[in-house]
Write a protein that binds this DNA or RNA. Structure first.
Length: 354
DNA sequence: GAGTCGTGGAC
DNA sequence: TGTCCAAGACT
């Protein structure tokens, strides 16, 4: 039943009706029509999609989701995968701690929960890589429990609906309270997806389509004419520029010298080229002494909190030469540029274009 | 709580 | 070109 106390205007019913007619078809989604027929989502697919969607667009996730579910159809299959295979499949999607935690979580669910994801917010929150948002998303979307999702979309929608001036992230608790008050006990899973869909399509950051919004009448920001400028955010720090060197050593038979990066820190657990530190003025640090030739061009890449300019140096890899244990000699047939994080793939692309 | 952690598309 | 932003988590 509807919560008349917290939702006197029946906003949740209204947006659910909108969702019934406008829900986007997504690979991991059960349509509202199918849900009404009693079809339940696969919690494994909901969990996988939600982790992939953290700070990532639907468009970027789709192909990865298909490859992962095709290769590992169940959480038990994923739990049994080799670490390197999962990292390689995740390559290019970014935020690689997600992939490491994904595998940890799959193994916990397999070993300690018999392959069945828990249903409650608190139990989900204890799993690796599952924070407040993802716990609420799995609980509501996969199990249809009345938890409140608070992602960037919901924050924006609530800030506008109630015309909240206070800047994020400080205003987050207030927005959470407002969002919780609207969460219905009826169809909470569809409701969660409805609010996020609204934020992703109509109530967009730059130019919201208020004219066709199902909540245009009750929206206080629309009345006040402030929708486009909400939510306010505290200003960000400028990004410094760092420099570095990477070393591409290729043998005459096509073998490459790569390294597995340490699990913690930037690009943790991913393959990469041996290289220098990344700093304002990095010291050269070739993996072995040789006549390293500068490729000439530069690799430019921007991370979350700094810009990077890489100098690419190349030489021939001596026969039977793995300098240290962390280095890997990868045969040409086993080398797939798609296994590399994007910044490392850019360095390869520069070599390839020469 | 502020820093860290990727990438690509939109504007 | 640069900036912002995306279904955030972890430290």
């Amino acid at each position: 039943m509807r919560d008349l106390k917290d939702d006197p205007l029946g906003l949740s019913d209204h947006i659910l009706t909108w969702y019934d007619n406008h829900a986007r078809a997504l690979p991991w989604r059960i349509s509202p029509k199918d849900r009404a027929l009693g079809i339940q989502p696969d919690p494994y697919r909901i969990w996988l999609s939600e982790v992939m969607l953290q700070q990532t667009t639907v468009a970027a996730v789709k192909d990865y989701f298909h490859r992962f579910t095709q290769r590992w159809p169940t959480v038990q299959k994923l739990a049994a995968a080799e670490d390197g295979d999962v990292m390689g499949e995740w390559a290019g999607l970014g935020y690689y701690a997600r992939a490491r935690n994904l595998l940890k979580c799959a193994r916990v669910v397999t070993d300690e929960y018999a392959g069945v994801f828990p249903t409650t917010h608190d139990s989900l929150l204890k799993l690796p890589g599952i924070g407040p948002y993802t716990a609420a998303a799995i609980s509501s979307i996969a199990y249809d429990l009345p938890e409140t999702v608070l992602d960037g979309n919901v924050e924006r929608v609530m800030a506008r609906l109630y015309n909240i001036d206070a800047p994020l992230p400080g205003s987050k608790p207030q927005l959470k309270t407002l969002a919780a008050a609207l969460t219905p006990n009826r169809r909470p899973g569809d409701y969660a997806q409805a609010v996020m869909d609204l934020g992703a399509t109509i109530c967009s950051p730059k130019s919201p389509a208020c004219g066709i919004c199902p909540w245009r009448d009750p929206c206080l920001a629309r009345t006040a004419g402030t929708a486009q400028s909400l939510p306010q955010k505290t200003p960000k720090k400028p990004k410094p520029t760092r420099r570095g060197h990477v070393y591409l050593a290729r043998a005459s038979n096509g073998d490459w010298l790569l390294e597995r990066r340490p699990d913690k820190g930037l690009l943790g657990g991913m393959l990469g080229w041996p290289g220098s530190e990344w700093s304002e003025d990095p010291a050269p640090n070739p993996p072995f002494a040789s006549d390293w030739r500068d490729l000439g061009g530069e690799v430019r890449h921007t991370f979350t909190h700094f810009h990077l300019i890489l100098q690419v140096l190349v030489t021939e890899l001596p026969t039977q030469y793995p300098p240290t244990e962390r280095h890997l000699r990868v045969a040409a047939d086993d080398f797939r540029p798609s296994d590399l994080p994007t910044v490392m793939r850019k360095a390869f692309d520069l070599w390839h274009s020469q």
